[in-house]
């Protein structure tokens, strides 16, 4: 390895760099390396056999579909919440702004059992839906989606809010003076400005939702092929000490997360180029 050179006159480089690398190696690099080492020991046939089992494929499908549905709801509601918080003044605004962060502060398992109890067929909310519309929420994919909406709420708001705050009102005024109605102004002037942040908030929520476990495991009911999510499959393989299968399923999940984050990076560059008029 090349020696790390540093010309700054501020002392303490060795100490801080050493501490950073030591702790980083122990906490992140070492486990990551053992994942790589273990992966290299997997044979392709073992790997393919595990990840193409119908139950595993169904787990991926359930995870992706529910995460997608929840993130779409959060994208729309997140945009509305960001808009309300930035553009309007009203009593209780500070409280709403604070409450949005709750899913980050409340432990996922606690949220999970509470949402489950509320949405079973004799829970406060579940009862209404079951008796009026015949819809079951807990122990169905709808239930999983509800839990994922809960944990994903802050992502889109916190991503769009700061960008929307910086959008210059002059452009909107100009558009309105030039005769655009409010819808056109929003769609053609404001929306393109906040689109990159909306996409990245959506992506973060989506990536988080796919891996979520604590809040989902209670409400899902975990019926194979129906409401069994991929992280739960990893968990059950681990409980049977089948590390090969657990690692194989996990590798595909890591690949999915990587693809999601890469698509986001590509979209960001396309959208920002279009907004700045280079494309």
């Amino acid at each position: 390895m090349k020696p790390v050179k540093n010309k700054s006159i501020i002392p303490g480089f060795g100490l801080s760099f050493g501490l950073t690398i030591t702790i980083l190696s122990l906490v992140v690099l070492l486990p990551l390396c053992s994942l790589v080492v273990f992966t290299l020991k997997l044979t392709p046939s073992e790997f393919l056999y595990t990840i193409t089992r119908p139950r595993v494929l169904s787990g991926y499908r359930v995870s992706i579909l529910t995460a997608l549905a929840a993130s779409l709801v959060n994208a729309v509601m997140g945009l509305v919440m960001a808009w309300v918080l930035v553009r309007y003044e009203f009593p209780g605004k500070k409280i709403i702004d604070g409450i949005i962060e709750l899913p980050f502060a409340l432990p996922t398992a606690v949220a999970g059992i509470s949402l489950t109890h509320l949405t079973t067929t004799n829970g406060w909310v579940g009862k209404i839906f079951y008796e009026r519309f015949g819809i079951r929420i807990a122990y169905t994919r709808l239930g999983i989606t509800i839990a994922l909406i809960f944990i994903g709420i802050p992502f889109v708001v916190r991503s769009v809010q700061p960008v929307l705050e910086k959008v210059d009102l002059q452009y909107e005024e100009a558009a309105m003076i030039l005769g655009a109605d409010r819808r056109t102004t929003f769609l053609r002037v404001i929306f393109p400005e906040i689109l990159p942040s909306l996409i990245s908030g959506f992506t973060l929520a989506f990536a988080r939702s796919i891996g979520e476990y604590g809040s989902v495991v209670f409400i899902a009911g975990n019926t194979p092929y129906e409401t069994e999510i991929a992280p739960l499959l990893i968990m059950s393989e681990l409980q049977e000490f089948d590390y090969t299968a657990a690692t194989s399923i996990a590798l595909v999940m890591l690949a999915i997360a990587f693809v999601i984050l890469s698509v986001n990076a590509v979209l960001q560059s396309i959208v920002s180029r279009r907004v700045s008029g280079l494309a």
Binding site: P31, S34, G211, Y213, G214, P231, I234, M253, A257
Partner: peptide, 11 residues
């Protein structure tokens, strides 16, 4: 995913 975090420590 937190489950994968646990998995890599088990490995």
């Amino acid at each position: 995913s937190p489950i994968i975090a646990g998995l890599i420590y088990v490995l």
